[in-house]
Amino acid sequence: MSLQSLVAETAVSIAERRAKRLGAGFYSGRQLMIIERSYKALRSSSWLVVLSGFVEPVFYLAAFGFGVGQLIHGMTDGNGHPVSYGAYIAPALLASSAMNGAIYDSTWNVFFKMHFAKLYEGMMSTSLGALDVALGEIGWALLRGLAYAIGFMAVMIPLGLVPSAWGLLSVAAAVLVAFGFASFGMAVTSFIKSFHGMNWINFVLLPMFLFSGTFYPLSVYPQWLQVIVQAMPLWQGVDLMRNLNFGTFNWHMLGEVAYFVVMIVLGLIFTTRRLTALFMR
């Protein structure tokens, strides 16, 4: 066996080529290798588990959109036009499914990989940097969120729940929402040390899902509560997607896009710093 091969591209030459760039200490540009790893792991795991996350919002749509929806009339879009209850809640459920997909991989799965599988420890003893790991894991979580959103979209369109062609832009919005939640979710998870702490994530997510204008307009709340709900990331996503779905535009939507961009950037910064502190100090 020859250990020194004649291949020009050695691990060392690859690392040295990169060394002069800014941020070489924490970023090698190889986040796709982490995604490749996740893809390989997924192929040999159970698809049913993945599928279950997609089915959940579909059940909500069936129960509330067509069950409860029979009893509800008088819902309107952003311009005051009447819409069916199913079409009202569908974009909100779309935002939730993007969120759920992103959260699965960026919280519990990250927690397990970090503390039990010791996967990041292994990655960080190669020439990868902390930002590679953060981007790769967040990118994978984002892909799952996007996959759920596309799947949900494929249910919405034939049911006539996407009245405007602008509604197709919801898929782009789903990328943004999933990226935001994945990034923020991994950052939060990286600071949590116990299972007990992890349960707080679920404790926050469920009420956020129920009360972020998902099933009824915010106007039912008193003013002070409206302000609190509007500060929540899911409401930002719900409002963005609902407006896209009905093709009603307003300036708030730019703010909502900016909200997710900030979430993404902050999440990446804190995750990278935390991974560095945990595995490189």
């Binding site: 591209e9 050695t10 691990a11 060392v12 690859i14 690392a15 040295e16 090698s28 190889r30 290798m33 982490i34 490749e36 790893r37 390989k40 792991a41 040999s44 795991s45 599988a117 010791k118 996967l119 420890e121 292994g122 990655m123 003893s125 190669t126 020439s127 990868l128």
Partner: peptide, 30 residues
Amino acid sequence: AHLGVVPQQDNLDRELKVWENLFIYGRYFG
């Protein structure tokens, strides 16, 4: 990139097969 590391506690990738463990680790190095 110059070093090979064998840690005290195995941190192999339990979600991957034996050959994939080696393959993916090499991918981490680019």
